[in-house]
Amino acid sequence: MKAAAKQYTFIDEIITDQCLPRLSSKVAFINKFKQLNAFPPLTVVGGKRKQDHKRTANAVLKRGFDIIVAGIALLVISPILLLIAAIIRLESKGPIFYAARRAGKNYQVFKFYKFRTMVVDADKKLQQLQHMNQYKSGDGPVFYKVSNDPRVTRFGAFLRNTSLDELPQLFNVLIGDMSLVGNRPLPLYEASTLTTDDWAQRFLAPAGITGLWQISKRGKKEMSAQERIALDINYSNQHSFRYDMWIMANTPKALIQKDNV
């Protein structure tokens, strides 16, 4: 069985007689997952599935708002985008944009765009900075965040501290990979550690540029991985168009951070 799992990498789990006591809870979780992500959104009333009109309205408002705001923003800030691209190219060799595979809603993998703020091949140097990792997760979920990361370029530090490196994600919003508000899409090595029933709940919400984590904890070194997941799950449980507007209203004060993280 182990050999088959290694050969066929799409296998998430092999069910044996030892798994049978937990099988019913796993099936219940999968049913809940499908129900919460159905469109039009569904709810169960008296044992019957009915369309959740409130969630449908929120979904339509959210997507419409994303398209309008992202489209207008890209037109307005296009001169700024060109200026940033030129400075990045002049400062160091390498691509202007950083594109990485990230896991968003329902673990959907997509290319995530940012302005490049690090030296070329920075990902390959991550293992050398394990001792500087802000998150000490032990056997739990794996997150990486390095304070005053030596891989960051001088202009890259400015882009990060002002959050200008995030602007290319408006393209992700426009094509539907992300939303303006949601849980941050995670690198695949982080997402692969969040597959238990409880932690997977954070992937029920859309991936977003800003979110509850950013306005609550951004730049605070004392934040643990568990606190970050709890904030993501909190948003996943209660996100709505009104809640998104509240988060966006509180985002500007979180844009400027003192610590280069």
Rank of each mutant, 00 (worst) to 15 (best):
V173S: 01
E166N: 13
L81Y: 00
A103S: 13
P185F: 13
F39V: 12
P141A: 15
L164H: 02
P187E: 12
G46F: 15
H53T: 09
N148C: 01
A205H: 04
I256C: 00
I87V: 15
N58V: 08
I68R: 03
K2N: 14
S236G: 12
H239L: 01
A70Y: 00
A191P: 08
A57E: 02
P41Q: 08
Q201I: 09
A38M: 04
G104A: 08
D244H: 03
N37S: 14
L74I: 07
Y8C: 12
T193L: 09
T195V: 09
Q127K: 14
L170S: 14
E222L: 13
E222G: 15
I233E: 00
K6E: 15
A100S: 09
Q238E: 06
P150F: 07
G138T: 08
Q128C: 03
L174K: 02
K217F: 02
K2A: 13
I30F: 09
R55L: 08
Y135V: 03
V44S: 13
Y135K: 06
D259R: 10
C19D: 09
L188R: 04
D123M: 08
L194I: 14
G211E: 01
S147Y: 12
L129S: 07
S25M: 07
K217Q: 11
N106G: 03
Q238S: 12
A28Q: 15
A28P: 00
M248I: 04
Y144D: 09
V181K: 03
R49S: 14
Y135H: 12
E227K: 08
A28Y: 11
T193M: 09
L23N: 09
L74K: 00
D197E: 11
T251H: 08
L126P: 04
S192A: 13
Q108F: 11
G156D: 11
G94L: 10
S92T: 14
I11R: 05
A191H: 07
N148W: 04
T193A: 10
R89L: 15
L194A: 10
K253F: 12
L20N: 07
L167I: 13
K217V: 11
S240V: 00
L81V: 02
I80C: 06
L231H: 01
N106T: 02
Q35S: 09
D197N: 14
I256H: 01
L204H: 00
A99V: 10
A28D: 08
M118R: 01
K114P: 00
R55I: 00
Q201L: 08
K145M: 13
A254S: 13
I209K: 01
A122N: 05
F115K: 02
Q257V: 15
N260S: 09
D149N: 06
K136C: 05
F143C: 05
K217M: 14
F97S: 12
F33H: 06
I256V: 10
D165H: 13
I209L: 10
L20E: 11
Q128G: 01
R101P: 05
V44I: 13
G208M: 07
D52N: 15
R202F: 06
T210S: 14
N37F: 05
I233C: 01
S92I: 00
H239R: 00
I84H: 00
I88T: 05
F158M: 06
G46S: 09
D66K: 08
P187I: 12
E91Q: 11
M132G: 05
I229N: 04
N31C: 11
V120R: 08
L90V: 08
I96A: 06
S92R: 03
G140K: 11
Q18W: 12
H239I: 06
V173C: 09
K220S: 07
V173I: 06
R151E: 11
A73F: 15
